[in-house]
Simulated scan of single mutants.
Amino acid sequence: MKKFAVILAASGLTLAACSSDSEPETEAVEEADSAEEAMTDTQDTEDTESDEEGGSVSVDEGIFNVEVTIPASFFNEEEDLKQVAADAEAEDVKEATVNEDGSITYKMSKTQHADMLQEFSNNIDELKNDIPESGDYPSIQAVEASNNYDHFTVQVDQEAYENSFDGIATMTLGISGSYYQVLDGVDVDDYEVTIDIEDAETGEVFDTIVYPEALDEMGEE
């Protein structure tokens, strides 16, 4: 599962990256967030739960705040988690706490959470457009995605695809879709990303890749 962190870092899809690329909020939104902060000071918040191995994902939605806990398995073992938390707080996240199990809990307003998901969605949409247009993966002609990025269809020239290393592009799609679902609150034991490889000429699906099983299989090799 640590491969998540390596590929995620390579693709540049991190929580801090999403928040740093977002557009400035309007004064109305800023005022709303300020009001949320003031009222939140008087309310009790529920504890975000995680298991002893840092394997659970929690999105705790209060009245005004959202707490997102990313499990330890999504971070590189050599990564400085305190620096990751500090970088997040330097952006739009209200608070980032490193937990004893190696997970990190991010506290933000509902507006910030919605903006973060939208920015991540935009990044994935840009990615699926860039893959066939960049020329780096000649056999891939188009990429389609479901609304919550739990399913991708990659249309390819089958012969060219099977005689190339273009399949590496599907790894980035699988990791990106997985991370989006985690941020959106899908439990770590329930999320799944299916990638169908389709012959563009015949419309036949000749290969299917499922994450996170694909990463587990890689770890066993």
Score class of each variant (00 low, 15 high):
Asp157Val: 03
Asp21Cys: 06
His113Tyr: 14
Asp87Val: 12
Asp199Ala: 04
Ala38His: 06
Phe165Trp: 09
Tyr179Asp: 01
Met108Trp: 04
Leu81Asp: 04
Gly12Thr: 02
Asp21Ala: 15
Gln158Met: 10
Ile140Arg: 00
Thr208His: 05
Met171Glu: 08
Ala38Met: 12
Tyr180Gly: 03
His113Gly: 06
Val59Gln: 06
Glu198Phe: 02
Lys110Arg: 14
Asp33Cys: 11
Thr153Trp: 12
Ile124Gln: 03
Ala32Glu: 13
Glu144Gln: 15
Phe120Lys: 13
Phe165Asp: 15
Lys94Asp: 10
Asp21Glu: 15
Tyr211Gln: 06
Val156Ser: 05
Pro71Lys: 07
Asp125Cys: 05
Glu89Met: 08
Ala85Gln: 02
Asp21Lys: 15
Gly102Asn: 01
Leu13Gln: 08
Val210Gln: 04
Asn147Met: 12
Ile195Phe: 08
Gly219Tyr: 15
Leu117Arg: 08
Asp157Gly: 06
Lys3Ser: 12
Asp130Thr: 12
Asp44Arg: 00
Ser139Gly: 03
Ala10Ser: 11
Gly55Pro: 04
Glu213Phe: 10
Thr105Asn: 08
Asp216Gly: 13
Asp190Ile: 04
Glu162Trp: 03
Tyr180Pro: 00
Leu215Lys: 02
Ser178Asn: 07
Pro132Gln: 03
Tyr180Asn: 04
Ser73Glu: 11
Ala5Cys: 09
Pro71Trp: 00
Asp216Lys: 15
Phe120Trp: 09
Glu67Tyr: 05
Tyr161Asn: 06
Ile140Pro: 01
Leu215Gln: 02
Glu192Tyr: 02
Ser34Pro: 00
Phe4Ser: 06
Phe120Val: 10
Ala200Cys: 06
Thr69Phe: 00
Leu183Asn: 13
Phe75Cys: 01
Phe206Tyr: 13
Glu37Met: 09
Val205Asn: 08
Ala214Leu: 13
Ser146Leu: 12
Val29Leu: 11
Gly12Tyr: 03
Pro212Phe: 09
Gln141Arg: 14
Ser56Thr: 12
Asp130Cys: 01
Glu79Pro: 05
Ala214Thr: 14
Ser139Gln: 03
Val188Asn: 15
Val182Phe: 11
Glu46Asn: 07
Ile209Asp: 05
Ala114Ile: 07
Ser20Met: 13
Cys18Pro: 05
Asp115Arg: 14
Gly167Asp: 13
Gln155Trp: 07
Thr48Asp: 11
Tyr180Phe: 15
Asp216Cys: 11
Gly185Asp: 07
Ile7Glu: 10
Ala32Phe: 05
Thr26Leu: 07
Thr45Trp: 00
Thr45Lys: 02
Asn147Tyr: 09
Phe4Lys: 06
Glu25Gln: 14
Val210Lys: 05
Thr14Asp: 10
Ala169Asn: 02
Ser34Gly: 04
Phe75Ile: 02
Gln181Ile: 10
Cys18Ser: 12
Gly203Ser: 04
Val182Pro: 00
Ala214Ile: 12
Gly203Gln: 05
Gln112Asn: 10
Thr172Ala: 10
Glu119Ile: 05
Ser19Thr: 15
Val143Gln: 04
Asp196His: 06
Ser164Met: 01
Ile209Thr: 09
Val29Asn: 08
Glu25Arg: 15
Thr42Ser: 00
Glu25Leu: 11
Thr170Phe: 07
Thr208Ala: 11
Glu162Phe: 02
Ser139Leu: 07
Asp207Lys: 06
Gln158Thr: 07
Glu30Leu: 15
Val193Ile: 15
